[in-house]
Design a protein around this nucleic acid. Structure first.
Length: 209
DNA sequence: TCGACTATTTGTT
DNA sequence: AACAAATAGTCGA
């Protein structure tokens, strides 16, 4: 049974795009959308990425603290897209995630800026080499895109794989981080993080949640 | 070497 | 039971 969580919807604007952020009563971020062309699309996406059942409060009930968190999240993304390395100033609500998804997201969050790894590598680190497809599945529903850098996971043959926000955005994000992508959509081997190294890094890194 | 295609595999809905 | 942001393998240009 999914828990029912009271939630606020914050919508911010980055350039001409909208980004929706779902925030619970403990001021934790439940999920967020990628920058989208319309407010409605952004909100729908954020809702669909939340792994728990939600009930929504009206915007007018949104207290200043919730609004502050919303702004912090949008500023984080904005700063990120400018090529900066913002720090997390807010908490994530990971309730409702399966233990598998939790492990996957944790490993992915330990991939350093400027590197990529592959679905199969992540699968191996979380304990089942054959679960590469399930890893893709989990990443496709990453509740915190960009913040948890699922764009740093590509296919084992160094082609890009997929991205919820489209391959153009995946390219752009990697480029911002200094990862070269060829016109045909290949990542250079120099940026590739092998399983052993990824495993080491994920052990060393503090748990994301 | 590359693309097209197949069989196999896993966690989630 | 069906799906998905995969992979390793084969086969024929």
């Amino acid at each position: 049974m999914k828990a029912l969580v009271q939630c606020f919807v914050y919508v911010g604007k980055i350039g001409d795009k909208y980004i929706a952020v779902l925030i619970d009563e403990k001021e934790r971020v439940v999920s967020l959308s990628l920058p989208r062309g319309s407010e409605g699309v952004a909100v729908d996406e954020a809702k669909s990425l939340a792994p728990i059942e939600l009930s929504f409060k009206f915007r007018s009930e949104m207290d200043p603290f919730i609004r502050r968190v919303g702004r912090e999240v949008v500023e984080f993304i904005m700063s990120y897209l400018k090529g900066e390395e913002p720090k997390l100033t807010f908490k994530l609500n990971s309730d409702g995630l399966s233990s598998f998804t939790r492990k996957v997201l944790s490993v992915v969050s330990s991939i350093p800026r400027g590197f990529v790894t592959c679905y199969g590598c992540v699968a191996k680190v979380v304990g089942n080499q054959k679960a590469s497809r399930a890893v893709g599945n989990a990443l496709a529903r990453n509740p915190w895109p960009i913040i948890i850098p699922c764009h740093r996971v590509v296919r084992g043959d160094l082609t890009l794989g997929g991205y919820r926000g489209g391959l153009e955005l995946k390219r752009k994000l990697l480029r911002i981080e200094g990862v070269a992508v060829t016109p045909t959509g290949r990542v250079l081997p120099a940026h590739f993080l092998r399983t052993e190294l990824l495993s080491e890094l994920s052990q060393g890194s503090r748990k994301a949640f």
